[in-house]
Computed example of a mutant assay.
Amino acid sequence: FTLALGPYVGYTLAVFVLLEGLLYGFGLWWFSYLYIWAILAVAAWLFRKMESRLGWGLLCGFYGLLFGTLTAIPVLILSGPAATLAYIISGIPFDLVHGVSNFLLAFLLLPTLRRILARLTRSLNMGTLYFE
């Protein structure tokens, strides 16, 4: 995973997920973060050459909509299909807000963030960004 995405991505995700658990507790939700962030990193890497703001907005929006379903996998394993369905349905309002806000943030901020990250990467002599 780390080699495919670059030397920093795997470690950054591991530290982030560990810090989330330390700050907010290692509840059932935390186990889903072990794979949710990895899936997102792989998706971003696969689409790294995409220049379209709309494309990135749609990708981020779709992932936000899918977030609740992805977090339901541990619920399925531990509690069965009925509890999983209830979990997914109860999370629909959150997922809608999550998806719309992800879309808007990616669509509006992506060009600026790319310029900032490219400048920082060059100034720190870290080589090139994986999406350049």
Rank of each mutant, 00 (worst) to 15 (best):
A4M: 14
L5V: 13
L5K: 09
L5H: 13
G6N: 11
G6C: 11
G6Q: 11
G6H: 12
P7V: 09
P7R: 13
P7I: 12
V9L: 13
V9P: 01
Y11L: 12
Y11E: 05
T12H: 00
L13K: 03
L13M: 11
V15T: 14
F16Y: 15
L18E: 04
E20D: 14
G21V: 09
G21E: 04
L22H: 02
L23V: 14
L23N: 06
L23P: 03
Y24T: 14
Y24Q: 08
Y24W: 15
Y24M: 12
F26W: 15
G27K: 13
W29N: 07
W30T: 04
W30E: 02
S32W: 03
S32P: 11
S32D: 09
Y33C: 14
Y33R: 13
L34V: 10
L34Y: 09
Y35A: 06
I36C: 14
I36K: 04
W37G: 02
I39W: 06
I39M: 10
A41F: 10
A41K: 05
V42W: 15
V42G: 00
V42R: 03
A44C: 13
W45D: 08
W45S: 07
W45A: 07
L46P: 00
L46Y: 08
F47H: 04
M50L: 11
E51Q: 12
S52P: 01
R53I: 00
G55S: 03
W56S: 00
W56Q: 03
W56G: 05
G57C: 04
G57L: 01
L58G: 02
L59N: 04
G61L: 05
G64D: 13
L65I: 07
L65N: 04
L66S: 04
F67E: 03
F67K: 05
G68D: 03
G68P: 03
T69N: 06
T69E: 02
T69M: 11
L70E: 12
P74Y: 12
P74N: 13
V75T: 14
V75M: 06
V75L: 03
L76F: 15
L76D: 04
L76C: 06
S79Q: 12
G80V: 08
G80M: 05
P81E: 08
A82E: 14
A86W: 01
I88L: 09
I88D: 06
I89R: 12
G91E: 03
P93C: 04
F94T: 06
F94W: 10
V97W: 04
V97I: 15
G99E: 09
G99Y: 03
G99R: 02
G99H: 05
G99S: 10
V100F: 12
V100Q: 00
S101Y: 07
N102D: 11
F103R: 02
L104A: 15
L105A: 15
F107H: 12
L108T: 15
L110D: 08
T112L: 14
T112V: 15
L113S: 07
L113F: 14
L113M: 14
R114D: 12
I116P: 00
I116N: 01
L117P: 02
L117A: 15
L117I: 10
R119L: 13
L120E: 14
L120T: 12
T121A: 10
R122F: 11
R122L: 13
R122M: 06
S123T: 10
L124W: 12
N125D: 11
N125E: 07
N125G: 11
M126E: 05
T128Q: 09
T128D: 08
Y130F: 11
F131C: 09
